[in-house]
Design a protein around this nucleic acid. Sequence first.
RNA 1: GGGCGUGUGGCCUAGUCUGGAUAUGGCGACAGCCUCCUAAGCUGUAGAACGGGGGUUCGAAUCCCCCUACGCCCGCCA
Length: 564
Amino acid sequence: MGYILDEFENEIIREIKNTLDLDTKIDIPLEIPDEERGDFALPCFIFSKHLKKSPDHIAKNLVENIKLELGTAEQAGPYVNFKLDNRRLVKETIEKCLEYKESYGKYPNKDEKITLEHTSANPNGPLHVGRARNPIIGDTLVRVYEKMGFEVERQYFVNDIGRQMAIFTWGSLNIDEDGLPEPERDKIDYHMVRYYQKANSLLEENPDIEDEVRGIIHAMEQGDEDILKVFRRNAEKVLEGVTGSLKRLNIHLNSFKNESDFVVDGSVDELISKMDKTEYCEREDGALFFEKEGRRTFLTRDDGTNLYPARDLAYHVWKAERADSLLNVLGEDHKLHGEFLRNALNALDIDPIPEIVFYSFVSFEGQEMSTRKGIYVTLDDLMDTAQEKARDEILKRRDDLSDQEIEEISEKVGMGAVRFNIIKVQPEKPIDFKWEEALNFQGDTGPFIQYTYARSCGILNKSDEEITLEKVDLSKLKEEGEIKLIKTMAKFPKLLSGVQKQNSPHRLAKYGLELASEFNQFYRDHHVLKSRNKKKERILLVTAYKYVLKSLLDTLGIDAPESM
RNA sequence: GGGCGUGUGGCCUAGUCUGGAUAUGGCGACAGCCUCCUAAGCUGUAGAACGGGGGUUCGAAUCCCCCUACGCCCGCCA
């Protein structure tokens, strides 16, 4: 038996088809109406033509004849509203929560492996807030796919070669540390980025360096082991810093693949000759390009050395051999490149082709963030400031906590605020980063949701009764605030499935706010521990709520503080 | 010039894919609520006909066309 709302929806669709005698393949446009009307609704307009009756008539007929076990149908003009039976809702939902605990919402394993590529930022310096959107979206999707039963590989494609990294390498070989400013913090990526930034400014002043940079690019592309070693070592150092920062946000990559591998092992060259044989490739002055719909993408230079599109393509061919499906999280500047990938993989008859989630950039006070130019707010600064703010807020309202407790809670709350603030916006919308918003802990924020978790724990910790399902009568839970809360809890599995199908992680945030808000209203209107006749039932409800919320926060990668 | 995306109350935002019944929530403003499980909470008031214009439809924030503003892209960079 699955989740109750899934079951009810399936029953409705099945019975509508039976009652109206429709083809089983036909799509029934069930929608979710305002909650006062019901849980599902069917507008009957579209059946009008086919059945040659008025929508009202069809609705009436449907309501009179449909047989539902899990709920009821009611006509409202041309609509039929379906309402799940409250007793079923309460019983099934709470039982499921107690059964699944913090993994509530999990669907059975699918035996399907997906490789989800995210972050993949050039490893030349610390992550700034603009880039941080990528791992936060990526990691949230990782968690969603896992809950939906996929096996997920979380992969970082390390662009350890290419022009920017060549400049970085040149800097690390030619610049003496004595001439560099103090790093902004004592962290390896901050030490390293100074070489990159200094190299860029030297390059601007002195164009002769360009030849040396080209020399490095060339040597690397020829597979020069010594140069590659330096490239990789630099990349590794920066990555150590970057993954350290991500860890603080509960983001853990479990797989890294170096771009240079595809050059060294010859797979790029192999791929290029395969591409050359397709009808889409031609040469111009010896340089090979792929052309589709009038757009050219060069795969090699005229001297035969390969270019990024070819290397990324080789990477995707490699990935396709190792997973059932692929998903990439990329900045909007990669849209055209994404088109190319799709077309080229099609031309090679490669499957699977990646789905791509594109996100718009984060600007800061109207400016684009840039590692090269040093215009940015680093993720580390944001995280530190968020934690400090959280600590201040705790000190304002608590005097009963140890230093260590304050430290732990402020970390959870600060990081929750950061992740939530980024994930709550639809990826394709641009974000203009504002400290004031990122550090807001009231209203539509992560801490708002975490707070209700702490509240639910507060109640449960004061109760030492051992309560089990057998000892209670769940049918006592029938007041409006109770039902509304349980109904919102019941929606979580279906929501997860929708988020996965549409790759729309921001909807988890929206749902979390709705869920927490329902709890706050329940909390306001109904006492739990002082309830005369349904204390046990309400304790069980709060326990179930706590599990749902924990599962939701886990999916968002946000820690759940027991107290705050 | 072309392609893609975005434009919803003063500010931020959901809904747009799959058209439907009074457009979601927050911030800010104003007015209230802690002798009662944490007020990072709750309640109420004011505030948007969904960038503009056409069209399709019984019905459009949602679909189509035109225009407009902003972002990204159109490199033998990545």
